[in-house]
């Protein structure tokens, strides 16, 4: 709120109304509805539903398949976050250092941002094609009979690689802008105080990048959890079968293919709580950055 805000009532209310209406209809209503139906068991043929209390939740937590999906989701998020952050950080540090061609490198490294996840997944299919894919051949050189969509580990590997590739540009852009916002005087002071470039990086540059890194950590976790849906859907080529999948994919699968309304809703609710926790973290981080930058 600004120091000298306007005092009228009707205008701000009118300005807020569209946003609030859309959020109410397309966010709170569905979310509430998901919460409600997570306590009901839907008749598979559409004849009404019965209240079952927390049964949908308990059966989920006792479900081995769900546990497997959860474990894969965690592993997948950790791998995708780690590799895309690490590669992007390395590239950003180098791009920040070079004088010639800095702008060209930036363009070449960031444009993949604009490619849709399912399109990236489709490119993945070409590279991991069972008979002709170059990366399939690469893995076969090490004696791994790489079969996308058949072998669980092969599919999982492909999913991680494509998801990392797709996420490098965002992280790169943020790291680069974080590096470039470090004042020149601070770098120069560090150069006088410490002659080791590695030492300077870990003692001066990295701590100053920490807020960016924390922010990206959350962005990347949400990316791995939700935005990779298209990558996963493309790489399993529409046949879930024995393939690895993330929690969000299972929500979709159980809800739309399995017609398990209650179970899918309960999964939605669990994910919503998870994201809410992330949001709170994110929010505190953002607010803090406002005050200190």
């Amino acid at each position: 709120m600004k120091r000298a805000g306007f005092d009228t009532i009707w205008l701000p209310v009118a300005l807020l109304m569209p946003q609030l209406l859309i959020i109410a209809i397309f966010f709170y209503w569905p979310a509430g509805w998901a919460l409600q139906s997570s306590f009901y068991l839907q008749d598979p043929f559409g004849f009404g539903s019965t209240f079952v209390g927390g049964e949908n939740y308990t059966s989920l937590l006792g479900n081995d398949q769900y546990k497997r999906v959860a474990v894969f989701t965690i592993l997948y998020s950790v791998l995708v976050t780690f590799f895309s952050l690490a590669i992007a950080l390395l590239l950003a540090i180098k791009a920040d250092k070079v004088i010639r061609g800095a702008k060209t490198y930036r363009t070449l490294l960031m444009w993949v941002y604009a490619i849709a996840p399912p399109v990236a997944g489709f490119l993945g299919i070409l590279f991991f094609d069972q008979s002709t894919g170059p990366l399939t051949k690469f893995f076969q050189m090490f004696g791994w009979d790489f079969k996308l969509g058949v072998d669980y580990n092969a599919t999982a590997t492909a999913m991680v690689i494509v998801a990392v590739w797709k996420q490098i540009p965002v992280n790169f852009i943020f790291f680069l802008s974080g590096l470039q916002s470090i004042p020149r005087s601070v770098r120069e002071a560090a150069m006088i105080d410490n002659r080791s470039a590695t030492g300077r990086f870990w003692q001066v540059t990295f701590p100053l990048l920490a807020p960016t890194a924390f922010f990206l950590l959350i962005i990347n976790i949400t990316y791995a959890l939700f935005d990779t849906f298209g990558v996963i859907d493309a790489l399993m080529k529409g046949e879930p079968g024995n393939n690895p999948m993330t929690l969000v994919y299972k929500v979709y699968l159980d809800g739309f293919r399995g017609n398990d309304l209650g179970g899918s809703s309960a999964q939605s609710v669990i994910l919503m709580v998870l994201v809410l926790i992330l949001t709170v973290f994110q929010f505190r981080l953002m607010e803090r950055r406002i005050h200190y930058t």
Partner: peptide
Amino acid sequence: VIFTTLLLPLEVRILP
């Protein structure tokens, strides 16, 4: 009310 929705993508509440 608005900012609770910040990170909650459509995918999570896709069915409802």
